[in-house]
Design a protein around this nucleic acid. Structure first.
Lengths: 243, 243
DNA sequence: TTTTTGATAATGTATAGACATATCTATTGG
DNA sequence: CCAATAGATATGTCTATACATTATCAAAAA
């Protein structure tokens, strides 16, 4: 597949990966010793070691001194799913993306949520808007931005600009907390998403930090019939959601 | 924290990680050259290189020849969430776990879903059951197991044994596909989970492979008010769901 | 001015060797 | 027989060096 010449340590790693994936090397089984691979590939131990260390770091194998190297049991309790940025996700599906601002307010933090974000008497920018896929509402977004951390947000016109996408460029985050849940559509959601009353919606709550500082809190509520989170995962590394 | 002496390349990596996390090194900023770190830590280039390569592999930094090394923008479109095994998740919350089998059938693949799993005329084990947290139903599970791949499943008594947990030990997977969606509780879910009719439920569909072979297909439908997926993620590595 | 070319500097890959560390095995001493 | 001990061995770390690769910058040519 890859037309370019592959570095040897990458080739060794891929060979082993392939054997593990295909089942030729099953979990628990012993992998060849470094010195065996070294003679097989006719290379130095450092090169083999680089390949094996990478596999070990990726959690595919376990290495024990004196004993050797063994294929690890993949653990289901740490399976992983991608959570895409909604704008990127929509365009990746080949649909056109749009954002429509419903409400914008600047105020002093009063509610618990606002104070958790901006602290006592901190100022927050509150935005409510709609994410559109091919012109149709896909998700409602309710966002709070900590103006102490992102003062420049106050001057931005978010009428048709996804705040999440803007923030991504303006203030890179270092930590995110995501929470996925389900909720029934209330009257407001029903109206805004144009769905049936009581329909199930997927809710994504996200809080982001930049270093120690809180940046933003957002809740995106998706039309449950039109949106789902998909992830393909294998023992080496996850891949992107399918088209 | 760590009482043992840390290898130098780990220390270098952690120092850089900490600087990135704390905001001392912001995305886009240039990281010191290898030869600078080499004199700073008084070590060889290979040691610095090992640390930097690891950070590069983890996606924290980007390295360009001649130009140097730069802190990467974390990309929201590849944020990640843990999907725990339900049994492990429930016990981790300090609740007692239980499984209750509702229906068990062995049959030849007829529906599209069954044939996708077991192929034309393949035999499948169909299991329906309830996951209980502290004695109360938390999720309904509908599972199909490919008996060609896991013949020993036919002899197992799943009356009070979580099939997913058993499978994990019996047949290690190499690939998983997860899908999260939301649905309204129908009459059957209402009855089995003891919830209100029409309530929103979180649905987790999972398909697993072992090498090229399909192992199982499962749909777990959760009581939306009692279950949510949580993940804390930072630019270096994700951590477990909070208690 | 624009384009080409070439030197330069940074990372990427690989080697051979050295010593450290953990752990398994066999031998020895009680 | 059990326990302590002493190899043996596989991985872990690190060095010093070499050459490959490639983006960048500046000088030379069009």
């Amino acid at each position: 597949m890859t037309s370019t010449v592959m570095p040897l340590h990458v080739r060794i790693r891929r060979d082993l990966e392939d054997q593990i994936r295909s089942g030729a090397l099953m979990p628990g089984q012993k992998v060849a010793f470094e010195h065996e691979l070294m003679t097989f590939y006719n290379c130095s131990r450092m090169t083999v070691n680089k390949a094996m260390s990478a596999l070990s770091a990726a959690g595919l194998i376990e290495r024990r001194k004196r004993a050797g190297t063994f294929v690890k049991l993949p653990r289901l309790d740490s399976t992983v799913i991608d959570i895409p940025d909604i704008q990127i996700d929509i365009t990746a599906r080949g649909e056109s993306y749009g954002f429509e601002l419903i409400e914008r307010r600047v105020r002093t933090a009063v509610t618990a949520k606002e104070r958790e974000l901006a602290g006592e008497d901190g100022r927050v920018l509150s935005l409510t808007g709609l994410h559109l896929a091919s012109g149709k509402p896909l998700a409602v977004e309710e966002r709070l931005i900590n103006l102490a951390a992102v003062p420049q947000a106050e001057a931005v016109d978010f009428s048709h600009l996804s705040p999440g996408h803007w923030l991504l460029e303006a203030v890179p985050w270092t930590q995110v907390e995501n929470e996925i849940s389900a909720t029934e559509a209330d009257a407001e959601l029903t109206r805004r998403l144009g769905i049936e009353k009581g329909q199930a919606c997927l809710v994504l709550d996200r809080r982001t930090w930049s270093g120690p500082e809180r940046i933003t809190t957002v809740r995106q509520t998706y039309d449950g019939t039109r949106y789902r989170l998909v992830a393909h995962f294998d023992t080496l590394r996850r891949s992107a959601p399918r088209p």
